[in-house]
Write a protein that binds this DNA or RNA. Structure first.
Lengths: 187, 187
DNA sequence: ATGCGCATGTAATCCGTTACATGATTGG
DNA sequence: CCAATCATGTAACGGATTACATGCGCAT
């Protein structure tokens, strides 16, 4: 059985909150999902067309004079059903690929300082990502965090905080271990 | 500029340790890299052929009577150069995709208990993965962890421990938050 | 003038998975 | 007798990225 496109469900999910154009969806994904999902136009527009053919979304065209017409998509009852079903099925095995770990695994092939530099850059990226999340969290009131439906977005941010902090902790430890190695071996 | 195949570098890396067949490489990846990389035969064999054409690996055929000939690949000096260069370049932006977070983000569309179940299953998977890593760590002596070239494999495992623990911690917190919600809203 | 935001999409290409195809040996 | 291990690969397909194509309005 072939692999199933998951991006279609993210699109359905976004449309379940409010109708949107392909352009809107792209912005939404960038602003809200960027740390755990991403999609380009080359995926969004064809997927919207496919979803429409399948009757999972409907399209309402708003004419505009000076720009391409806005194609505003809405989720249909059938679409809501498919979405709810997917949301209830267990998460598939996720095959994560950590390029940093591959590079580090073969780190004995290059100077230790190169490895340290890779780790430092990795840590800096994670620190920036963590800061962005901290800002998000501050915008949510305590009530929203634990009570309304905003609890779900909050939980995703919470995961990001945990994972980014873990990455930063690791980077600090790893860098120290390599610095000691460097001191012992090269001098 | 098209996307560059990174699996080729993993293959080069493995061959830089010792010559191997496609079959060997698959086993290696499964046993040693499984938590941060994966590859199937459909990728390995064609990639090996491509690498040979580019002169980055060479092939030595060992005839066998009862089985297909073993094609033992070795890395060439050119291959070592390409590998070292890649290892020294900064890690590219990693686009991670957490299916669990997508599902949770839209969690208000389904019963809370479904979300809790998803979180529990997620935690159980991470716990199993963590246990496997703990076994690996115990096999490495303290000296190896901090001194020889085995420090690099050790650092990758260390990352795994940090990230898996963070995921488990998050799952515990998230479950508790949802359990409280369930108690308040439904009764 | 230059670039950004709005707004659509297609085509080429590559990456990766899955299914298919073959077949002997060994251990339980 | 059945499953696992060894050992090779190809073909078809689907997923995702990148490059290409168009074009106005507005702010700097």
């Amino acid at each position: 059985m072939a692999k199933i496109n998951k991006s279609r469900f993210i699109i359905l999910g976004i449309l379940s909150m409010k109708p949107a154009t392909g352009y809107d969806i792209k912005k939404w994904v960038e602003e809200t999902f960027s740390f755990f999902w991403d999609m380009g136009y080359g995926q969004i527009y064809p997927t919207l067309q496919a979803l429409e053919k399948e009757g999972l979304v409907s399209c309402n065209i708003e004419s505009q004079d000076t720009r391409p017409d806005r194609k505003v998509y809405s989720i249909t009852p059938a679409g809501s059903g498919v979405l709810a079903e997917w949301l209830s099925t267990p998460v598939e095995e996720e095959k994560s690929r950590y390029e940093i770990l591959v590079k580090l695994f073969f780190g004995d092939k290059i100077p230790i300082l190169h490895n340290i530099k890779n780790i430092q850059e990795f840590r800096e990226k994670k620190q920036k990502e963590l800061e962005i999340l901290e800002n998000f969290v501050q915008e949510l009131s305590t009530k929203e965090k634990r009570n309304s439906k905003m609890v779900f977005p909050y939980l995703t941010i919470l995961m990001g905080q945990h994972v980014f902090k873990a990455s930063i902790d690791w980077a600090n430890e790893a860098e120290e271990i390599l610095r000691n190695l460097e001191g012992n071996d090269n001098h």
